[in-house]
Design a protein around this nucleic acid. Structure first.
Lengths: 149, 149
DNA sequence: AAATAACAATTGTACATACAACTAATGTAA
DNA sequence: TTACATTAGTTGTATGTACAATTGTTATTT
């Protein structure tokens, strides 16, 4: 279904149409992710942070490092991390080399939770590209790269 | 810049990479929009609703109609409309044919605000596609369509 | 060394969003 | 016509997010 029909709109300039199409698609993906994550008691941004920390392979990360790497940059990562601490999924200690910084790391419990979530999320991700050829996947990523500039 | 580098990640399965890339790009677009809209005192979802109402060309819309057409479906459109009413940008009256429904319409003030916002937002939208050929724009929209299923 | 600037994170506060429970109106079935 | 179900929106409440002001720490300047 064309995006114009999905949002019951008439013809639009290419720029507006494309911008809306990207955001519309992204929201649909994110809503679906949120639904998958909900039974596990975490939100998409929290999941994103947990995966960033897992990617550190034991090495802790600063708040600003996490923020840089987040899919959706947000203006209160402190409180997002607070939630994860409350849930026992991450640890926070002040950095000894630079006491302004904090060192955040994922706990065993956090790793265990991620390992449970991996499968359903990977299934969703595979589902996203299931109608695309490998050429199309490559084209899409190249075009998105150009958009990001 | 590759998305893997943007989020400082290693190689990922195609599905995950593509999902992240779409959401990352959409968030960047939305953040930029929010920045443009801020001086006008409205948020992206509020702007979206105003444009939906303008598209009605005088004919009012129900809450559920608005919700259907929104880029980002949300679970409290009542309060979003409340905000727009407070700002004098839209009107709400109960529908006479079916008193469960409400009829929401954009005010003159709302139209005036939109007309001021149109130019900066269109500029942003054009900027998004400025590095793309018309073939690429078409490819992108076709691929996103396939993803939406 | 003292003063100032820059940096990293936290906190206060206002605002936005999600979700379930609820109200009210209409439609349907017995 | 009563009873029940469905529809459309609203409200309570909890949670999430934005942004500016603040705290504490380190770096730079004079």
């Amino acid at each position: 279904m064309k995006i114009e029909d999905a949002i019951k709109s008439n013809a639009m300039p290419d720029g507006r149409k494309t911008a809306i199409h990207i955001m519309y698609t992204a929201n649909a993906i994110q809503d679906k992710s949120a639904e998958i994550l909900k039974p596990f008691g975490i939100t998409p941004p929290q999941f994103n942070v947990l995966r960033i920390l897992r990617g550190q392979k034991g090495k802790p990360a600063n708040l600003c490092t996490i923020q840089e790497r987040m899919i959706s940059k947000m203006s209160n990562t402190t409180r997002l991390v607070d939630k994860l601490i409350t849930k026992g999924l991450v640890n926070r200690v002040t950095c000894e080399e630079n006491r302004r910084k904090v060192e955040i790391s994922i706990t065993e419990e956090g790793l265990k939770l991620l390992s449970e979530i991996d499968e359903p999320i990977d299934l969703q991700n595979e589902n996203i590209i299931k109608n695309l050829s490998s050429e199309e996947i490559e084209q899409l990523n190249n075009i998105l790269e150009k958009i990001r500039g």
